[in-house]
């Protein structure tokens, strides 16, 4: 523990979405779908191709607040993979990081694997670091559940 431990938040999640890879890939870059699927998303607009500006309201105690952020998609290899980098800040502090997203074909569904490195600052680090992983998993789960509904509804 000396020098102090570093708590880098590394997050690996994987979800199954009932649609083919190309549709899922396209959905991940569609501002209208993202706005509906991102939990607590109050606004999301494309500022340039593959660049977004968003406002999120997060209600998790300890890191509760409105976060304003930007996100960008790079390393696009449709329909297999993309990289999402993001940076957001709000009253409780800031979050920034990047996520490597890989889409692999499954039976009547696409498996979306996501490996994220997240760095947090301010109160989020001071009081929320223990909550970040659980919170991020919860938010990711909510996102993919909503995305699955979107995909099923429009099939």
């Amino acid at each position: 523990m000396w020098p102090p431990r570093v708590r880098k938040v590394k997050l690996t999640v994987s979800h199954s979405v009932p649609a083919d890879r190309q549709r899922v890939f396209d959905a991940l870059g569609d501002p209208a779908i993202l706005r509906r699927c991102i939990p607590g998303c109050e606004s999301l607009t494309a500022t340039a191709p593959d660049a977004y500006e968003a406002t999120l309201k997060i209600g998790v105690p300890g890191i509760k607040g409105v976060y304003a952020g930007i996100a960008a998609i790079s390393d696009k290899h449709p329909p297999e993979s993309l990289t999402l980098s993001f940076e957001g800040k709000g009253g409780p502090g800031f979050v920034r990081g990047s996520a490597a997203i890989v889409l692999s074909p499954g039976e009547a569904a696409t498996r979306v694997g996501c490996e994220a490195d997240v760095q947090v600052g301010g109160l989020i680090a001071a009081v929320g670091s223990r909550l970040i992983e659980a919170t991020a998993r919860k938010l990711a789960g909510d996102f993919f559940n909503q995305l699955s509904k979107e995909m099923s509804a429009t099939t």
């Binding site: 523990m1 102090p4 431990r5 570093v6 880098k8 760095q119 600052g121 109160l123 680090a125 001071a126």
Partner: peptide, 12 residues
Amino acid sequence: IYDENGQLLTGE
């Protein structure tokens, strides 16, 4: 404890 970025991890 502060992490390598100087973030305070022991805030409460």
